[in-house]
Nucleic acid binder design. Sequence first.
DNA 1: CTAGATTGTCTAGCGGTGCTAGTCTTCGGA
DNA 2: TCCGAAGACTAGCACCGCTAGACAATCTAG
Lengths: 192, 192
Amino acid sequence: MPTQSRRERAREERRELILRTARELAESDGWDAVTTRRLAEAVDYSQPVLYGHFKNMNAIADAVALQGIEELTAVLRDARETGGLRALAHAYLDYAAAHPAVYEAMFVRPTALSFGTPDSPAALRSAFDQFIAAVDPVAGDDPETLAEVLWSALHGQATLNRTSRLRPTHTQARADALVSRLSGTYPAPADE
Amino acid sequence: MPTQSRRERAREERRELILRTARELAESDGWDAVTTRRLAEAVDYSQPVLYGHFKNMNAIADAVALQGIEELTAVLRDARETGGLRALAHAYLDYAAAHPAVYEAMFVRPTALSFGTPDSPAALRSAFDQFIAAVDPVAGDDPETLAEVLWSALHGQATLNRTSRLRPTHTQARADALVSRLSGTYPAPADE
DNA sequence: CTAGATTGTCTAGCGGTGCTAGTCTTCGGA
DNA sequence: TCCGAAGACTAGCACCGCTAGACAATCTAG
């Protein structure tokens, strides 16, 4: 049985090598640079080996996205428990800025991951739950809608920040303004 | 002079034919389907003709994006003048939903259009001015930041709506919730 | 210990992509 | 009328995702 297991272990390691390499390649040169040939070259195997582990190139990006969602969920949970809504917002934008390629795989590239409500990979639902928990204190009835508003607003900032479509000097101010307005605590408590 | 003009006119018509066809193709089959061969085939010319009018394939998408920005600006101006912030928000999302490929060319695909503040094609600045004007009544000092917050929030909703990452039943509710919170006119503080 | 089946891996190749060099043809101006 | 410019095309390069088919290594069974 150790034989069988040995093979499975090697196989799993190869899979992770591919994933890790793809992620690094994407993060350093963009997803366009992650081609079957280049990726195969980087892991020192031939292209067909990739297809023994993943259905196609897209499935590799999807797998990276899934990793990212789990990471992001942990980051968001921690931030929310520590510093509430404002901390969560900044943590989200920080993560997107720090891992642009992973972020792109998660939420920008077309993906086969199911987001609706059918059987989302649990990780997805769990990430979204952080948003619901974060807005709960300030949401009226229907926290889910407000959570969607928050998430999409952050997502918009993350993507437009990245593509240089917003003033790079005001990323913090935008995040703060969003949180203030959404939570209803803005005009600045008068002044002190 | 009519001779020279004749050529120029024909050239301009060809350019517009390419642009129109590319837009239709993108809108019906997605930008991935807009390849030099297919596009050339559709306009009944050979591929090199495309390069006589545009530097490369990306420049064609950029040109479509520029058209879209002008359209969108007009739509936003009209909505804002008629129904203020709320109308502008819904008009934005409606435009994005009605012309997904053009929207993608404008704000999702990597583009060579300069968004910063250097010499944005005027159309860009003019579109953004609609957001500033819309939030001005409810913004404190710094309407520009709030305008960026509004725009990115709408952009986030537009893109996540499109990729089925938000509940399709609640697009209106999300837009309304965003506008309410940003303008500060929501559940009514406290409860009555 | 050997025979056969399974698994791993590779080379080679298909059709498609963006883009360009080189050639020919058509047309406007002197 | 002749010539140069502009228009258009065929052919081709290097790359892409992906797969078929051959070969080598390994495990399983007798």
